[in-house]
Measured scan of single mutants.
Amino acid sequence: MQIFVKTLTGKTITLEVEPSDTIENVKAKIQDKEGIPPDQQRLIFAGKQLEDGRTLSDYNIQKESTSHLVLR
């Protein structure tokens, strides 16, 4: 499924993911596309910070959901 990640600069990154993917996996995909190390990434969805060990389905992130990327 596709999800979108919006950066603070207003850029939207499109990612191909599975509901069973962990947040860690998603951060690795963002690193592949954008070159941002996962330890600098914070992903926010529905006002919550997403934890590495959880999956997209844990957070009820469905296709075409948009989460926000904040850099630390």
Rank of each mutant, 00 (worst) to 15 (best):
L8Y: 14
Q40C: 13
L43M: 03
V70E: 13
Q49L: 14
T7N: 06
P37I: 05
G47K: 04
F4W: 07
D32C: 10
E64V: 07
V26Y: 01
S65T: 12
T12S: 07
V70R: 08
L50C: 05
L69W: 03
S57Y: 09
H68W: 15
K33E: 07
V70L: 14
E16F: 13
M1K: 03
E34F: 09
I30F: 02
D32L: 14
K48D: 06
Q40L: 10
Q40Y: 08
S20W: 14
D39H: 13
T9F: 12
K48F: 09
S57I: 08
S57Q: 13
M1S: 03
N60C: 07
G47E: 04
I23V: 09
P19V: 07
I23Y: 01
N25C: 12
N60L: 05
T14I: 14
E64Q: 10
E51M: 11
D32A: 14
G10T: 03
A46M: 15
I3P: 00
P38E: 06
L43H: 01
Q31S: 12
E16A: 09
T55R: 11
E64C: 11
V5C: 03
G47F: 04
E51I: 08
R54M: 12
S67I: 15
V70D: 07
S57C: 05
L15Y: 02
K33P: 02
L8A: 13
Q40T: 08
G35F: 04
E16D: 12
M1L: 08
I13E: 01
S65A: 09
T22L: 10
G47P: 01
D52I: 05
V5S: 00
T66I: 13
L56I: 09
S65I: 08
E16G: 06
I44D: 05
P38S: 13
T14W: 07
D21K: 01
Q49D: 14
R72D: 11
P19C: 06
E16R: 09
T66P: 08
Y59N: 02
R54P: 03
I36D: 02
P37Q: 06
K29D: 02
D32Q: 14
R42G: 05
I3A: 01
I23L: 04
N25D: 12
D58H: 10
K27Y: 04
I44K: 04
T12L: 14
D58V: 03
T12H: 07
P38I: 15
S65Q: 08
G47A: 04
F45K: 03
V17H: 02
E64R: 07
N25T: 14
T9D: 12
V26R: 00
I30H: 00
Q41T: 05
D39E: 13
Q62K: 12
T7Q: 06
P19L: 09
I44T: 11
P37Y: 05
Q40V: 09
I3F: 05
V17L: 05
T7D: 06
S65Y: 08
A28F: 12
G10Y: 04
A46N: 15
Q41P: 01
E18Q: 13
I36T: 07
L69H: 02
P19G: 07
T12Y: 11
N25M: 15
L15F: 04
K6W: 09
G10Q: 04
V26P: 00
K33F: 08
L56T: 01
F45G: 02
E16N: 11
Q41G: 03
L69D: 01
I3D: 00
G47C: 08
V26F: 03
Q62N: 14
L15W: 01
T9I: 07
L8I: 13
T12R: 08
I44V: 10
A46Y: 09
Q41Y: 13
E18I: 12
G10M: 04
V5W: 02
V70W: 12
A46P: 01
K6I: 14
G35C: 06
D52F: 04
T12C: 13
Q62Y: 12
T55S: 08
S20L: 09
I36M: 05
S57D: 08
I13H: 03
K63R: 12
R42Y: 12
V5I: 14
T55Q: 06
Y59L: 06
S67K: 11
T22V: 04
E51P: 03
T7P: 03
K29N: 03
E18C: 13
T14S: 09
G35L: 04
E64G: 15
M1P: 02
H68C: 13
V17N: 00
V5R: 00
K27M: 07
Q41M: 13
D39N: 12
K33R: 10
T12N: 05
F4M: 08
I23D: 00
G53V: 07
K29P: 00
M1W: 13
V26T: 03
K27C: 02
K6Q: 10
I3W: 02
K48T: 12
H68Y: 15
S67P: 14
T55L: 08
H68T: 13
K11C: 10
G35A: 05
D32V: 13
E16H: 11
Q31H: 14
Q41L: 06
E16S: 11
V70F: 13
I36C: 04
K33V: 12
D32F: 11
T7E: 03
K11H: 11
I61F: 06
E64I: 13
Q62F: 13
G10E: 03
